[in-house]
Design a protein around this nucleic acid. Structure first.
Lengths: 342, 342
DNA sequence: ATGTATGAAGACAACGTTGTCATTTTTTTT
DNA sequence: AAAAAAAATGACAACGTTGTCTTCATACAT
């Protein structure tokens, strides 16, 4: 690589290749209508000069900048890092940049803030993660303003935008079946944050598995949680204080499951001998706590990558019927679940 | 807020305020030499039209874009999220955007990749996190190319750039003193990744505390780790298999400490009754595992925020003697450390 | 009053691309 | 071989700012 702090512009390349700047532009943007011989000459010049197109100029002249935004309001660091990794991979591959934007749904002017972000940076589009991917005011605002977006794990898979999701319900069902197969019949469920649509899906999967073996859903065994450690711990304390406590607790994410395990430790309850615990997400944590956690592996990285690719595709060739992209979850059985105590 | 998808440009504002575009530009950029009355008129027009300057145009016309890059090669999700949060807070406050760029030091052409990133996006500067903040080839390349940067936790606090760090050595020393005060004399230390300069600082702090009570450093008690769970677990297995195993293990970060605790569980070793364990970083994990982890709280968010602010300041008014910014760590005593077993 | 700094504001040319159209060259058709 | 169609390329005007001069007031010193 030639170290050359001087700016090499499209004009330099054009001069070197003996063509007009427009032709260089065509080569760079892979437009058709270029003679192979000409293209090779231009490509050679580009490499010789180590030409890099100026993003600001492209953004100014072209219809959109090569930036897309990633929005999230999610307390789980591992989830976010995975999502970022996936989206970044797609962006790099496609020559886009990614603007990270954590936000808080508590903010009263969030929609306006986001719209402002889009305009300020001329974002080509947005990637929405839960719970933002399911927040009607935002979806309405973006649609009205014509801002393209792709959603990760929304509840309603309507046709209004491309989206990527996975079979939470089925995975939760499978995991519950696993607990049932171990002989458990009093299986508690800790619900996720009501703003996240995945919460409901996972609950439905749990109920479905119970129904399959003829068990009625027991409302006292379905406790509200909020996807964080503390709510899991609290819920577990509540469940374990019942006159007839459950023999297994299915927390609908790993953070809450960690809280359950913590609560069990506090009470000197051996896992899995006295209590089985399962989570959902397969964060790195799941392999690091003791005992290791039975959980569901979500392809978070892949989901984000797909979402970004769908968005970019939409940007390039607008107005297609949006793709729906389902991915598979995978149940991971580890040490935190065992046979029902006699 | 007026919802107006049409683009409002500086010309519209100028027309509305009855001034030239240059005057609007001056107001927007807070340049001096503006009559208060004029400024108010312009400001009013800006608000009335909901004008937002076009970033691409600014980047093209001006000397730099309003983007800075955040570089990291670090496996810890919590650390990264904290750093991002701090840097983003500073950027938002100062009207900059942040470009996230994970990278891998294993890549043979990393320097060139980074230089390319800077040029492609016309980045105003870079924030470097460990171990990048200590990697001579990169520092040399950036200096040579005149790319401004701020470093987080570098080893050498030279004057070549602004940097932010904290007293790892002192904190490690204090934590070791805590273990000594509990009666421990065979205290093992699991070293961090050799690429991170903090590793050495923490080791020195540990040795210093030992020296204070007249203990010689015992090489067999200093085991190499790499800041990840598995290396911590492995190191612990090795230490616990010794003929005369340590009564306390100080892992130089929380992930490794989690590995130690896992290994102790594997061997049925009660913590802290039979073995005390301490970590470093105070990740959320530290409060969630059982037993809760004695560790050192690092002001990661604040460090990143300061670093970003220093960088932006440098961008605005270049060529000052760079600031050195030390912050304080804080020892957090929890349940994983206890009196030495008799 | 006159000349001189000084502060405010404007005119206009960059900045490096892409989009639109016009032009040239090549290929196909008759 | 001529005409028509198609493909390849080029000329030039956007795009929306900031930077550099210039111009015009205004205040100040003489």
């Amino acid at each position: 690589m030639q170290i050359n702090p001087q700016k090499v512009t499209i004009h330099d390349v054009a001069a070197k290749a003996g063509v007009s700047i427009k032709t260089v532009s065509r080569v760079v943007n892979k437009e058709g209508s270029i003679r192979p011989e000409t293209r090779d000459r231009v490509t050679a010049a580009i490499h010789a000069l180590n030409y890099i197109p100026n993003l600001s100029a492209r953004g100014l002249a072209g219809s959109h900048s090569f930036l897309i935004g990633l929005l999230y309001d999610n307390p789980s660091a591992n989830y976010i890092i995975d999502v970022q990794g996936g989206a970044l991979a797609a962006c790099r591959q496609e020559g886009f940049d990614l603007l990270i934007h954590p936000c808080t749904m508590a903010s009263p002017r969030l929609c306006e803030e986001i719209l402002r972000l889009v305009r300020l940076n001329r974002l080509g589009g947005l990637i929405l993660t839960p719970p933002l991917s399911d927040w009607p005011p935002l979806l309405a605002a973006l649609t009205q303003q014509g801002v393209p977006f792709a959603r990760i794990a929304p509840s309603a898979h309507d046709q209004s935008s491309p989206c990527v999701f996975c079979n939470d319900q089925q995975a939760a069902c499978e995991l519950t079946r696993h607990l049932l197969s171990l002989g458990h019949r009093r299986i508690a469920f800790i619900k996720g944050h009501p703003d996240h649509s995945a919460s409901e899906q996972r609950l439905l999967g749990y109920r479905k598995a119970l129904a399959e073996v003829g068990l009625m859903a027991d409302a006292s065994l379905e406790v509200q949680g909020y996807f964080d450690f503390d709510s899991g711990r609290l819920a577990a304390q509540q469940l374990l204080a019942m006159p007839l406590p459950p023999t297994a607790i299915f927390a609908s994410n790993d953070d809450m499951a960690t809280g359950v395990i913590f609560a069990a430790h506090e009470q000197g309850l051996d896992i899995p001998a006295k209590l089985s615990v399962a989570g959902f997400d397969d964060t790195p944590l799941a392999r690091q706590i003791w005992p290791t956690l039975t959980t569901v592996r979500q392809p978070i990285h892949d989901m984000a990558e797909r979402a970004a690719l769908l968005l970019i595709e939409q940007l390039r060739s607008s107005r297609q019927p949006w793709q729906q992209h389902p991915l598979q979850c995978l149940v991971q059985i580890r040490k935190s679940t065992g046979p029902v105590p006699r």
